[in-house]
Amino acid sequence: MIRFENVSKRYPDGTVAVDDLSFEVGEGELVTLVGPSGCGKTTTMKMVNRLIEPTGGRILLDGEDIAGIEPVQLRRRIGYVIQQVGLFPHKSVLENTATVPSLLGWKRAAARERAAELLDLVGLDPKVFGPRYPDQLSGGQRQRVGVARALAADPPVLLMDEPFGAVDPVVRERLQTEFLNLQANVRKTVLFVTHDIEEAVRLGDRIAVYGEGRIEQYDTPATVLGKPATPYVAQFVGSDRGLKRLSVTAIEPSDLEQPPTVRLEDTVESAAARMREEDARWAVVLDANGELHGWVQLDALALAKGGAVRDHARRMEAWVPVGANLKQAFSAMLQYDAGWIAVVDGAKFTGVLTPARLHEALRRSIDADSSGVDRAEVTIETVG
């Protein structure tokens, strides 16, 4: 979708902002450009919509050299979101969102209908927020409007220049989550500029790590964290890159243990007998449909005088859904001071993740990337 071929940007005073840049962004891919201030990442992005003109090489958009496209027409085909949002203060939220469709000649009713759809998509009720003006919104709400406006004409490409950098950390994390959910639905080709490696890792399908006007490494977040290409990249991503990698390593079925399970309607005696047979001090409690209910301790059953498991089961607080990453699992363990967490598919119990298995999963993921094989093929030696 976007291809850079030996692109450079040199200014008259001799400053080289971008030097011989070549990389490609696939259709529907979200690529984060990350690096320190002045490294050329924003220049790279602005050359895509010709806010800055390259001095060498060429940029292709869906196979077409953008140098041959009239700049205004090009920009109307590309969504653009910046940190300060840039909403028109004298226009309502709905009018701001309908700006590009209106410029493209859409009928007023169609443009406003599209704007309302996009506001709803980014979590702003158009009936509530549409009539408001930018100064009546919070910073996070303005950023959502900025994203909605950029998507209003359904552009194939979205450029985002540190869009969440001006809000507080809590709002920023929420906006990142919402944007990932949005991207899963709209699948735009996105160039996302950030100086924050954690944001780059969380959002990007691939990451371009910038040095001085050049890309030092262009790869998946897991590979950048697990196998930095240069000492510069290793220093930039940080000595805690192993912890950062938790957020890009998904829990897989092979990572889970299968503890004993008992049913709510089981008698105390039968459940206790099963747990003793498996030499287990606790068991996961499921309902009649195999859905997670909680857990029960053998000691509690041993002291009971008859009855059913349901009378002694404890609520399960520590759990994550299938598809969660290791960071989410680790966070749940810490939050609930749990020695293990359950993994569920919907409400169906699939297994538990222990700290030892979490560690093994991380090591297996790193070794798999280094060897170019699937995680299931990696054998981890443990000291026991």
Rank of each mutant, 00 (worst) to 15 (best):
M1P: 12
I2C: 02
N6I: 00
S8D: 02
P12A: 06
V16D: 01
A17Y: 09
E24S: 09
L30W: 07
G38N: 05
K41E: 01
T44C: 10
M45I: 05
M47I: 07
V48L: 06
I52M: 11
I52D: 14
L60W: 02
G63T: 12
E64N: 12
I66L: 08
R77E: 09
L87N: 07
A98P: 00
P101V: 10
S102V: 11
K107E: 15
A110Q: 14
A111G: 08
R114V: 01
D120Q: 15
D120A: 14
G123I: 10
D135S: 14
L137V: 02
G139N: 05
Q141G: 08
V145P: 03
A152F: 06
L158Y: 13
E162W: 02
Q183S: 04
R187V: 14
E199V: 09
R202E: 02
R202N: 08
I207M: 13
V209R: 03
G211A: 12
G213R: 13
G213V: 04
Q217D: 04
T220L: 04
A222H: 05
G238V: 03
S247F: 00
V248R: 10
I251Q: 08
S254A: 11
D255Y: 09
L256N: 09
T261N: 09
S270W: 03
E278P: 04
W282G: 09
A283F: 13
A288N: 07
L292Q: 08
L298I: 11
M316T: 05
E317G: 05
A318F: 01
V322R: 14
I341Q: 12
F349A: 02
F349D: 04
F349I: 06
I366G: 01
I366E: 03
G384W: 12
